[in-house]
Amino acid sequence: MSTLERVVEALAGISHTVQKPRDGAVAIEIEASVVPQALAALRDRAGFDTNVFVTAIDRYPAEPRFTVCYSFLSTAHNDRVRVQARIPGEKPHIATITHLWPGTAYSERECYDMFGIVFDGHTGLKRLLMPQGYDHHPLRKDFPHQGIEPDRLYREWDQRRRDRSPLRSESEA
């Protein structure tokens, strides 16, 4: 039984479309609302025991703007599957899958950090790479590469540090 047949069999009853990506991998697209059921079926019925990555693609200004990509690996069957789900750009959110694969916690946090996609049900969803308190989501296409006020958080910290320093008043008088 080929990988695609196994995947399609596992997803019986869940609407999906089979994609034909450039690298010849098995890839399917599903509705964002059925992500937990579909992925649970892939794990339990098709034997995909390892998550490889969770990421997103920003297709700004097209709508639906974000594509959330999941990639899974089956160590028993030695094959992979990619799953995609599209979500709109306005208040993007999708259900978490950390209860199925605990290893997706950081990937989802990174996705939230970089794209602002909220993963419903994720315990401890906060920024992973950028500092807490950062205003923007850098990997969105409408965010410039050089950033917007990249030093703001540091300057604020620096000001607090200098305000606290008792040595300042002496030398600045």
């Binding site: 990506p21 450039r22 690298d23 991998a25 890839a27 490889v52 990639s71 992979r80 990619r82």
Partner: peptide
């Protein structure tokens, strides 16, 4: 590069 997606590990 051609349009499409690819993953290699």
């Amino acid at each position: 590069l051609p349009k499409g997606e690819a993953y290699h590990a």
